[in-house]
Computed example of a mutant assay.
Amino acid sequence: MNIDFNKNNDGLVPAIIQDDVTNAVLMLGYMNKEALEKTKSTKLVTFFSRTKNRLWTKGEESGNVLNLVSVKSDCDHDSLLIRVNPEGPTCHKGSDTCWNEENKSKHGFISKLESIIENRRNNSLEDESYVASLFAKGINKIAQKVGEEAVELVIESKDDNNDLFLNESADLLFHYLILLQAKGYKLCDIEKVLKKRH
C-alpha cells in the first residue's frame, strides 16, 4: 500500500473508521506515516492529533479503543478506510459514532420489515393486518405458522421450482421474524449468539 502522505503538504491523510461488523461509519481522523505504522504494529488505531500536535491512540484515556481489522487505501492513495472492532462508544461525547448514531447491525429491508412488524404488534388493537391478527392469536398460533412454513420450505427444496422455493423461504423468514418479536427478541439478538459461537 503506497499512501501519498505529501499530497496535502501537511503529511496527513484522512482515515475513515468503519465498524467491521455493522459497517457503520464511526468517525473520521487523520493519520501521518508514523500513525499508520503504529496502528499496524499495535493493532490499535492511532491518529495524528492536529490539536495536540502528536500521535494519539484512540482510547488512550477513555479505554474506548478501536481494534484494527484491516486498512485499505482509496483509488488515489490519499485516504484510508480502516475497519475496526470498537470497544465502547467511539465519540468523545459518549455516542456510538461521531454523528450521534447507534452502532447496530442493519439488515437492509429486513430491518425495515422488523420495524413494520413491531409497529403492527404495538398497534394491534387498531390494526387489522395479518401480522396484528397473528399476535392477537398468541404464541402458539405464531409458532404453528413457523412450523408450517418450515415444512413447506423443505418440500419445495426437493423440487426444481426456484420461484416456489424462494417464496417459501420468504414466508418462513417473515413468520420467524414475527415469532422472534413474540418472544421479545429481534434478529440482532440471534446475531449476537452467532457471533459468540464464531
Rank of each mutant, 00 (worst) to 15 (best):
K38S: 11
D19C: 02
A182D: 13
Y30K: 04
A15K: 03
R120H: 12
S157C: 15
T90L: 03
L180Y: 06
F48N: 07
N162F: 14
L28F: 00
A136V: 13
L68C: 00
L28E: 04
H77D: 10
K112R: 09
F174D: 06
S111F: 05
H107D: 08
T51A: 09
E61W: 07
P89N: 03
K38I: 13
V193C: 04
V71Y: 00
M27I: 02
S62V: 06
V71Q: 03
N64I: 00
T90M: 02
K196G: 08
I155L: 15
Y30R: 06
E191S: 06
D19L: 00
A35D: 06
G11A: 14
Y130T: 12
N2G: 14
K58Y: 02
T97S: 03
C75I: 07
I142M: 08
K104V: 05
F48L: 05
L81A: 05
N8D: 12
V21K: 11
N2L: 11
S124G: 09
I155Y: 13
V146P: 13
L194W: 06
W56Y: 08
E152S: 10
A136W: 11
N103G: 00
M27G: 01
Q181N: 12
R54E: 10
H175Y: 09
K137Q: 14
E60H: 12
I3S: 03
V151F: 15
N122G: 13
A170Y: 08
L177G: 10
